[in-house]
């Protein structure tokens, strides 16, 4: 079996990943309850009804999972969620680039930031190959986006140096 196949096949005994959603659900519901504890009944009724069911469901799931681990049938590993493939496939890098995209778009404007994101995102995934093609494609796509969203639909997307320059030119 190749390394890629190995990394894509999570250990079936690792159930730590399966518990993330129930733990988040449990935590969020308890937080939600804390925000409505002094509220009028209209704010509480459906949340308490739904929340109680969710707490029971999540608690039972967590309890069953812990029992499986104690019986030695499973472990608290997170191999279903995190693996070496996250780094080798470029997923982690793409995530970082996405965070930067959202952070910078307000200042860089839609067109330039989208170009930067598409270029770096594609470059990360292609492992540095086809730089010229990727640069052309990213530029083309962000310009099409500029034309469609900002010029045609007049959408209020974040404006930056490129949009200001084009506003002067057009």
């Amino acid at each position: 079996m190749t390394e890629k196949q190995n990394s894509n096949t999570p250990d079936k005994r690792s159930i730590g990943g399966d518990m993330v959603i129930p733990v988040v659900a449990l935590g969020f519901t308890l937080y939600y309850f804390s925000t409505i504890i002094d509220s009028p009944w209209t704010a509480q009724v459906s949340a308490f009804f739904i929340g109680t069911i969710l707490i029971v469901l999540a608690a039972v799931f967590i309890f069953k999972s812990v029992a499986k681990v104690r019986l030695g049938e499973a472990g608290f590993g997170f191999s279903k969620l995190f693996s070496k493939a996250d780094i080798t496939s470029g997923r982690l890098s793409l995530f970082i680039v996405t965070v930067l995209y959202i952070l910078l778009i307000e200042w860089g404007g839609f067109t330039l930031t989208t170009f930067g994101f598409l270029f770096s995102g594609m470059l990360v995934l292609s492992k540095g190959r086809d730089k010229g093609f990727i640069a052309l494609l990213s530029a083309g796509l962000s310009l099409v986006g500029y034309g469609l969203f900002i010029i045609v639909f007049e959408t209020r997307l974040p404006h930056g140096p490129f949009e200001w320059l084009m506003a002067l030119v057009l």
Partner: peptide, 12 residues
Amino acid sequence: YLAPCIIAFTLI
């Protein structure tokens, strides 16, 4: 090429 396009244009 597809994944970055999906992310950029849907987040927008």
